[in-house]
Design a protein around this nucleic acid. Structure first.
Length: 448
DNA sequence: AGCACA
């Protein structure tokens, strides 16, 4: 390849073009200012600002070549230089004949975001965590994930461009909160652009793609095991069948973990229907029942391996129980059925299951829509939702857990939905945390 | 103060 010498970048006389190149523009010069500058000479049909390494160059395109010539000619002989905000700008014919791509997909947003997850462990970020993160901004319709040379990417579909835009603005360049990730994962940074898609095609619910608008969508054959359960993880490894009931075992239990503590912790992700605590192998275990599998999945994703209290105390290990409906015979300090109205603490309920009232006031066994984590979560009267953050042992606070995803970790304090403004939760009516360390007031989560 | 975007 011989060097190209016939196209010097700068020459004294350039062939006229209806596109003018402007330089030495003030910081963040707007399109409007460019239009104002060119308007006296003709019709400005296109502009492009913030061009060049210093973002202080721009182009304006006239509808007609003569208009561009008029502008150049005027300032060539004018005693007053062209100015924007009092700053002299230099103009000349551009070496191109038209402005291209002034409005690209990077500028005009749609309702679908292209998300690149960066980081050594990016591929280990589950679609459920992504769903959790993006649901903080509105109902997520669909998510697809895929591997490209750019790395691990996802398309996230919202209802509208406004919601997508708010998510992009809040999340672009941020890390996924570490408390949403398995403990051993390194930081995972989100890079977000707009996708040209408007409606993703999701054929199956799988570990790679989800359609949250269609509960009846078949589960991908590859993700179904012999029991018909959803059982394949992101990397294809077998998982235990998902269940609406979680089995929690608590390691390093330096503090008493009460029923109320568990209820508060697990209520952050959706209504807790029942809890049963018992001792096993010298440690404490608990079964926590949600109305649906999806809520349990989200809770497990978020809580697995995390400690209820700072300092490594009361570390939670979660697995899916084989149960789907716990039989709570007695409501006491070890077990409770929260779906029974008018439960009085410590008052044993009749042990005859058939006498338990139908939970017409209890949480509906709704299908998972993601709405639990949308900013406008409905609070069920029977299920007071804690609004404090994760309990910590007091300052210093290395990290906090989400009480619920309404506590949008990406929003600065003061922008929380009004119901999030209270520092402390409304405790369930049946008591506080007699044996637990003091609960600090809610702190909005933070990104590292 | 000196030419974008894919």
């Amino acid at each position: 390849m011989s060097s190209v010498s016939s196209q010097p970048q700068f020459r004294l006389t350039q062939p006229p073009s209806k596109v003018l190149h402007l330089r030495n523009l003030p910081w963040e010069c707007t399109e409007e200012e460019l239009v104002e500058l060119g308007k006296p000479f003709g019709k400005v049909v296109n502009t492009k600002c913030n061009v060049g390494p210093n973002r202080n160059q721009a182009f304006i395109e006239f509808s007609d070549l003569n208009q561009a010539i008029a502008m150049i000619s005027y300032y060539a002989s004018s005693s007053e230089p062209a100015q924007v905000r009092g700053k002299t700008v230099y103009l000349q014919y551009s070496n191109r004949q038209e402005i291209v791509n002034n409005k690209t997909t990077a500028d005009v947003g749609g309702n679908v975001l292209l998300v690149t997850i960066e980081g050594a462990d990016a591929r280990l970020v589950s679609i459920d965590v992504l769903h959790l993160v993006f649901s903080a901004f509105g109902f997520v319709h669909k998510i697809t994930t895929f591997e490209k040379t750019a790395g691990f990417q996802a398309l996230v579909q919202f209802s509208d461009a406004e919601t997508a835009s708010s998510a992009k603005n809040a999340l672009d360049g941020r890390n996924i909160p570490s408390y949403l990730l398995p403990e051993h994962l390194g930081p995972c940074t989100l890079r977000i652009t707009y996708s040209a898609h408007t409606d993703l095609s999701v054929k199956f619910q799988s570990h790679r793609s989800r359609d949250y608008t269609n509960a009846n969508l078949p589960v991908a054959p590859s993700a179904i095991d012999a029991n018909g359960m959803f059982s394949v993880g992101l990397d294809g490894k077998k998982l235990e069948p998902e269940s609406n009931v979680l089995l929690a075992s608590i390691e390093n239990m330096q503090y008493a973990v009460t029923l109320d503590v568990l209820h508060m912790v697990f209520s952050s992700f959706g209504p807790v229907q029942k809890i049963a605590m018992f001792d096993k192998n010298g440690g404490l275990q608990a079964l926590i029942q949600y109305p649906d599998v999806q809520t349990a999945v989200v809770a497990k994703e978020a809580l697995e391996g995390h400690c209820i209290y700072d300092g490594g105390f009361c570390k939670l290990h979660l697995s899916y129980s084989r149960h789907s409906d716990l039989s709570i015979k007695v409501n006491n300090d070890r077990s409770r059925d929260y779906t029974i109205p008018n439960t009085v603490m410590m008052n044993p309920q009749p042990s005859i299951l058939g006498q338990q009232p139908v939970a017409t006031h209890g949480p509906p066994a709704h299908t998972y829509t993601g709405a639990h984590f949308a900013p406008t979560t409905e609070h069920h009267p029977m299920m007071p939702q804690p609004s404090i953050g994760w309990a910590t042992g007091g300052p210093p606070v290395p990290h906090s857990m989400p009480a619920q995803m309404n506590n949008n970790p990406y929003l600065p304090p003061g922008t929380m939905p009004p119901q999030m403004g209270h520092g402390m939760m409304q405790m369930p009516s049946h008591g506080g945390l007699p044996h637990a360390p003091a609960m600090p007031p809610y702190r909005p989560g933070h990104m590292q």
